[in-house]
Design a protein around this nucleic acid. Structure first.
Length: 625
DNA sequence: CAATCACCGACGT
DNA sequence: TCGGTGATTG
């Protein structure tokens, strides 16, 4: 998840709370399948005034469209296409229904005591033969597991159904794939923390079991502490459980012929790619990172799931779901933090500087400082100052300025480790942060995604210069606005080297799979997390759902602004028999590449962990004791 | 004075 | 987990 404390600053002012999503059932008016769908969502009239804080100083080419006459065949009304970030929903549902899962890790000590008593009772009945009892326990546990999974999935399904039925939209489910290489170290740190939590919990459980203290003596506070520790250790990262839940969900999707995509890595990048390519109009998510990825229209807190306030929380029997709609063009009107004249590139840089999943922020750098540093470096003006669109340090790459400014602005404890800038002793620490910073930037701006048109993995906004995109797969070309930012960022050599060279880029964002494997992953036939273990050829996977993608995806994409007509032919080639052999060899070499990548990442991750804990704003560095 | 960080309380299914 | 409240820092 993105920066904590950012959404509360933005959503109340820039977002539209209590937006009734059923308004989407009116659909969208688009001029033509090939026309850019700049159509306004939610407002039926063009918001006049041409957006005084429109992020782009450059003028958009305004072509005169034909006058909207509803009888004209060039104007069509179509459904709104919504991509749903399902992973967030699954996690949330998992927490909500946690009480259903009565196994030892998820329930409070009370439930554990019940389980223990029941087991003992059964043992007594069975005359000390506890094998039978364990079998019964297993049975009971697996039954509860199923119950839990079905409860979670049906919660998610209800919301999807709402979007489809009551909002009259086409819904595309997007799921998380594997953990990207550059995130592995952060994930490992987190799981270490979870292990700590689990030990804490187990220690307390042992105390309960072995201690003479009876349950009745326990104060309520201790009980709550236990439950909290149990929750911390539990549901979060139960891989099997999550996989089963995703599996169940995908099963339903296949049954009902709902389109879905399993992203090769993180769902965020996939969602942003789909939105940027015009495949979907709206993204429903809880993740603030999507803001940094330049999605034009987002919906947060659907149904008030994540509600601090009581906004969006009228989930009655009314079948009425509300959400907070946030449009990219409204970001400048945010009152909590001034984001006027922020381009997508600036937003992304700000997110990275303020700390994200791939790059913890320097201690003492928060949203505001990050904003100011980025704003100054790009525009050379203060938050309240007059707008001077001139760079403060001409000739110095913007990214270099930002990094140095961050080093200067951070907390004292971190600053003594990176300053002075000309101290060669501290260069190692600085470059470690810099590498994580650039990697995070690359993850945001060039994630590896699945392109549903060419049915292959592509690098989003590909700017690589060495060779054509992998296997002839072509990504949706980056917009001119994106390139404008990218040119500024690429003034800094290390970033340019990272994003323009495939080997370097793949080491950070992950390498693409061979098209057939990529398709299997996207369809959920292959678990991307276990690809290195599974080396069975993915080409002829005999799964009934193999064709499910066809019609539904086609329906989703029917108005896709397709500028090259031959993609269909190309994707046909992938499945043709002649290339089959070649593909399977590619696939095996690909597996090697994956292993290589992970190996090298492992080594490079040492640089992160070598950072002093004081430097990184880790949530609780002192929790060790 | 303002921004960040650590602690604590509660929410909803 | 999330968001509100004091302490600390510059």
């Amino acid at each position: 998840m993105g920066i904590s404390g950012l959404l509360p600053r933005i959503l109340p002012s820039a977002g539209r709370e209590n937006y009734d999503l059923r308004a989407l059932s009116d659909g969208l008016i688009s001029a033509n399948a090939n026309d850019d769908n700049d159509d306004s969502i939610g407002d039926d009239e063009e918001e006049g005034g041409e957006g005084r804080e429109e992020p782009s100083p450059r003028r958009k080419k305004r072509r005169r469209l034909p006058r909207p006459s509803w009888s004209s065949p060039s104007w069509t009304r179509r459904k709104v296409r919504i991509a749903v970030d399902v992973s967030g929903w699954i996690a949330r549902a998992a927490h909500g229904h946690g009480g259903l899962l009565m196994d030892e890790r998820h329930l409070s000590y009370r439930g554990r005591a019940e389980l223990r008593d029941e087991r003992m009772r059964r043992r007594r009945l069975d005359g000390g033969n506890d094998v039978n009892g364990d079998v019964v326990d297993d049975e009971r546990e697996s039954r509860q597991r199923l119950e839990y999974i079905s409860a979670c999935t049906s919660t998610v399904l209800r919301r999807i159904e709402f979007l489809i039925d009551d909002c009259g939209s086409s819904v595309l489910l997007v799921l998380d794939g594997a953990t990207p290489p550059c995130k592995r170290d952060v994930v490992r740190a987190r799981s270490d923390r979870r292990v700590d939590a689990a030990e804490e919990r187990d220690g307390m459980a042992a105390e309960v079991n072995g201690g003479t203290v009876d349950e009745a003596v326990r104060t309520e506070a201790e009980v709550l502490r236990r439950i909290s520790a149990s929750n911390r250790a539990g549901t979060g990262r139960d891989h099997e459980l999550r996989r089963d839940m995703v599996g169940a969900l995908l099963g339903v999707c296949r049954e009902r012929r709902w389109p879905y995509v399993v992203a090769p890595y993180e769902a965020d990048g996939q969602l942003a790619y789909l939105a940027g390519a015009g495949t979907v109009d709206i993204v429903v998510t809880e993740d603030s990172d999507l803001i940094a990825l330049g999605v034009p229209t987002l919906i947060y807190k659907m149904g008030g799931w994540n509600g601090s306030s009581d906004a969006n929380r009228q989930l009655g029997d009314d079948r009425r779901l509300l959400g907070t709609m946030l449009r990219r063009s409204d970001l400048g009107s945010s009152r909590g933090i001034d984001l006027r004249d922020f381009t997508d590139g600036m937003l992304t840089t700000m997110f990275v500087a303020a700390g994200c999943d791939y790059c913890e922020s320097l201690m003492g750098i928060g949203v505001v400082t990050a904003r100011n540093v980025v704003k100054r470096a790009f525009h050379g003006c203060e938050s309240d100052g007059t707008e001077v669109y001139r760079r403060p340090y001409p000739g110095v790459p913007v990214l270099r300025v930002i990094l140095d400014e961050l080093f200067r602005s951070c907390h004292k404890s971190a600053r003594v480790q990176v300053l002075p800038l000309d101290d060669p002793e501290k260069e190692g620490v600085r470059s470690a942060y810099e590498r994580a910073f650039l990697a995070a930037l690359a993850m945001f701006r060039h994630p590896l995604v699945y392109d549903p048109i060419s049915r292959s993995h592509v690098v989003a906004n590909d700017v690589c210069i060495d060779g054509p995109p992998a296997d002839g797969a072509r990504s949706f070309p980056p917009s001119s606005l994106f390139l404008r930012d990218e040119r500024i960022l690429m003034e800094y050599g290390p970033y340019r080297d990272l994003v323009t060279r495939k080997d370097a880029l793949y080491r950070v964002i992950g390498a693409p799979l061979a098209p057939n494997l990529a398709r299997d992953v996207a369809e959920g036939l292959v678990d991307p997390r276990q690809l290195h273990e599974k080396d069975t050829g993915g080409l002829d996977v005999p799964v009934a759902a193999a064709h499910s993608e066809g019609d539904m995806m086609a329906a989703m994409l029917e108005n896709y602004p397709n500028d090259d007509e031959d993609v269909g032919v190309k994707s046909g080639e992938y499945t043709s028999g002649s290339s089959r052999l070649q593909l399977s060899t590619q696939e095996s070499s690909r597996a090697d590449t994956l292993g290589d990548t992970q190996g090298s990442i492992r080594s490079s991750s040492g640089m992160i962990s070598s950072l002093s804990p004081d430097l990184l704003a880790s949530p609780s560095p002192k929790k060790r004791s």
